Amino acid sequence: MLLVKRANEPGAGLWSVPGGHVEAGETDTEALVRELAEETGLVVEPGPLVGRVVRGHYAIADYSARAVGGTLRAGDDAADVRWVDATEYAALPLVDGLTETLAGWGVLPAQT
Rank of each mutant, 00 (worst) to 15 (best):
V81G: 00
V95W: 09
P109I: 02
L102T: 01
G56K: 15
G13V: 07
N8I: 14
G20A: 10
T99H: 07
G69T: 01
E23K: 15
V107S: 10
T87R: 15
E100H: 12
A24S: 12
V54C: 13
T40K: 02
L108K: 02
G104V: 08
P10E: 06
L49W: 10
L36D: 09
P18A: 08
L98I: 07
E30K: 14
W83I: 03
E38D: 09
P18M: 04
R73Q: 11
Y58V: 11
R52I: 13
V107C: 11
L3E: 04
D85G: 12
Q111L: 11
K5Q: 13
V107T: 09
A61E: 12
G75A: 10
L2R: 00
P109S: 03
A65D: 01
R6L: 11
A61F: 14
D85Q: 07
V4I: 13
L94S: 00
A61Y: 11
T101N: 04
A110S: 10
Y89L: 00
G11R: 03
E39V: 04
Q111P: 12
L102Q: 05
A31S: 15
T27Y: 12
D28W: 15
R6I: 03
P109E: 05
T101W: 11
V81N: 02
G70C: 01
L2H: 02
R66M: 07
V68N: 05
L36Y: 07
E88C: 06
D76E: 10
D96T: 11
A65M: 04
E9S: 14
L108N: 05
A37R: 09
P109V: 00
V17C: 09
E88T: 14
G70P: 00
G20M: 08
A91W: 07
L72D: 08
E26S: 11
P109F: 03
V53L: 13
L94V: 04
G19N: 01
L98K: 04
A86E: 05
A90Q: 04
M1N: 00
L42I: 08
E35G: 01
A7M: 08
M1Q: 00
V50L: 15
R82F: 00
M1D: 04
H57A: 15
D80T: 04
V81K: 03
V43W: 10
A103D: 06
A59T: 14
L32Y: 14
T99N: 02
A24V: 14
S64Y: 07
W105V: 03
V22R: 14
L108P: 01
D96N: 13
A7R: 09
W105F: 08
L2E: 01
A110P: 04
V50A: 14
G69Q: 01
L36F: 09
E30S: 12
L49C: 07
P10I: 01
K5Y: 07
R6D: 10
A67S: 11
L36H: 06
